[in-house]
Structure formats: C-alpha cells, structure tokens
Design a protein around this nucleic acid. Structure first.
Length: 328
DNA sequence: GGACGAATAT
DNA sequence: AATATTCGTC
C-alpha cells in the first residue's frame, strides 16, 4: 500500500520528470516580471541600519556554480543529516505509560540522495580518483543510476538505529538473525547487508562476552551500559503469549545510551536500494513483527517485548507486554 | 554466485 | 573503538 507511493517517489524514469519540469517552468514568472538581481529592495538607510551591504554582482556562471555546489553538498551531507536528525530529535524523552504515541510514517533513510545507493560502493576499487570531481552535469542529472561514483560513507549506528537492530534480532532470535534478514526487517533505506553484518558481528561478540560474565550490568566500568533493557533471563522460556514468538529472547543490548523513546517500525516500505524483485519488505498482515521495548523509567525493566501490529502506519494493538520491577 | 562469519584493515 | 572490507567456507 505505501509501497507504490515509495516507488513513485523514487521513480527515476525520465518521462514523468520532463512533464513536471515543463509544468514547473510554465509557472515561472516572466523575465520582465522579475526585478534585477542588482536592484535594491530596501532603502539605503534601512540597509545601513542593518549593516546590509549589496551583494556582489553575480553572473550566470556564478549562479550555476552555486547551485551545483548546493546540490553536491546536499548529496554529500544528507546521510549525516539524517543520522543526526535521528540522534537529536528524541532527546527529551517523555515516557508515556499507556498511549504510546507513535508516528507510523516515521522512517529511517540513510540514502544519501534518495536513490539507489547500495550499488554505489566501490565502483572503482583500483582506479579511484576524480570520480566525484568529474562530470558535474551528470551529478545534476536526475538519473544517477549509471553514475555510482559516490562512495558509501561510514554509517554511524545511532541509538535509534541500534535499537531497531536489537529489536529485530530479538524478534528473530539469535539463530535466524542473519545479516540479510535483519537488514530487511529493519527496513532502513540505505542500510546495507554489510553494515548489518559488521554490526552483528560486534553484537554477537558482546553477547558472548556478557554470557561469560554471569553478571549482567557491567556497571561502573561501562557507563554506557546504563541500558534500560534486560540482559539476563534470555534463557528462561517466555511466559505468556508464547505462541507468537517462540524465541522471545530478551535482547542483550549493546553499550549504547539508553533510548527511552519508542521508535516504531515503519510500515513495510519499499527500499529503493534493493535490487530488482525485493520490494516486499515485509507483510504486516502476516507478520506483526513490530515490537519494541519500552522501559517506563529507570526502575523498570521490560521483561518481554511489546508486539505491535502495524497497518497503514497505525498501531492496531498491543498484543502483550509484561514488565517487572527491578529488584533494587 | 550469493550469503555468512571470522579475520583483518582503516 | 567503531565500522568497513576481505576472504575462506558453505
């Protein structure tokens, strides 16, 4: 349902764009209607009062260059921007007890330019050199599917991203949690299997390490471990609701800052990065896999997971939840 | 040949 | 330390 929208959003086939461009151009004001760029729009007094100086004259070349710079910088920054946005937005966590307000449309997007970036990587392992510099025009063209010269930039696993990762791994169980599956279930645009594999490797090491040291809560040594979730009890079979998730291991979170704000799974989403036939991210009807751990506050651990059904970006129901007081 | 996971590189 | 890349294996 949402998929078609996404697909059209990322449609890069030329025809439609041409129409829209000409439509857009038709709506532009006539040259005669536009004031000269050099024309003063405010009085001289006003200008001096606000220390406004006249902008230097700009030629078409300057304007063109500036717009290219803007485009290329946007392409370069968009990923970091997205990541930062995720990091910043929820800093004021207000924990709701019931009534988890979740914006179903919230979506991760790590794609630098909104188009297929998964294939961008190492197009030129040996050659390297002026890829990004080369043809500015091709960079501006909407159809970038052939010019994959952008290098995938280093992914930062924000607490939000990691949280979703942990949720998915917990849902799958450590056995079925393999990179590709995780990647698909995380449903994050621009997230590659390699990204997940690397993170998963670290995660497994962490789990192993935690398993060895019988005690949970590394406490003082690792302040980042102030995780609100439950590392222990991954062994005991899940009480209540058993059928839905046979392996509802309580996830062992990695040392990241606690994330109190529930970050919902977005509705299944077309991942434009996926090659060819992959567009079925996940079917929400047959797989109500969305779940989240939502610690209320520091005193409460979440024993089991909250499973939510998603449909058209809305929560249909909480299947179960179970919390338990921390014994301290 | 693709996916996985461990080893290794950055 | 975190993440990416390589490489042997299935």
């Amino acid at each position: 349902m949402g998929e078609e929208v996404r697909i059209s959003d990322y449609d890069v086939s030329g025809g439609d764009d041409d129409d829209r461009v000409s439509e857009w151009e038709a709506g532009l004001p006539n040259v005669d209607d536009l004031p000269s760029l050099s024309q003063l729009l405010i009085s001289a007094e006003m200008a001096s009062a606000f220390s406004i100086t006249a902008a230097p004259h700009r030629s078409m070349v300057d304007v063109d260059r500036a717009s290219r710079d803007t485009v290329s910088s946007l392409q370069g920054q968009s990923q970091q921007h997205q990541v930062n946005k995720l990091t910043d937005s929820k800093s004021f966590s207000d924990d709701r007890d019931e009534e988890m307000v979740v914006e179903g449309e919230e979506t991760f997007d790590l794609t630098p330019d909104g188009s297929d970036s998964r294939k961008l990587r190492r197009v030129d392992s040996g050659g390297a050199s002026g890829g990004a510099v080369e043809d500015a025009h091709s960079a501006m063209r909407a159809d970038d599917t052939s010019t994959k010269t952008l290098k995938r930039i280093r992914l930062v696993w924000t607490p939000q991203l990691h949280k979703r990762f942990v949720e998915v791994v917990a849902h799958l169980g450590l056995k079925k949690a393999v990179p590709k599956t995780i990647m698909q279930m995380m449903n994050v645009e621009g997230l590659s299997r390699e990204n997940v594999a690397s993170h998963l490797q670290k995660y497994r090491l962490y789990v192993k390490r935690m398993h060895g040291s019988s005690n949970e809560a590394p406490s003082s040594s690792d302040p980042l471990f102030a995780s609100p979730t439950v590392p222990k009890s991954s062994r005991n079979s899940v009480s209540g609701g058993g059928t839905v998730n046979p392996h509802s291991h309580v996830p062992i979170p990695m040392p990241y800052q606690p994330q109190m704000v529930p970050l919902p799974y977005p509705p299944p989403q077309m991942v434009p990065n996926q090659p060819g036939g992959y567009h079925h991210g996940f079917d929400p009807h047959s797989h109500p896999y969305s779940m989240m751990m939502q610690p209320r506050d520091c005193q409460i651990e979440v024993e089991d997971l909250h499973f939510l059904k998603w449909k058209r970006g809305e929560v249909y129901g909480v299947i179960w939840e179970k919390c338990m007081k921390k014994s301290t």
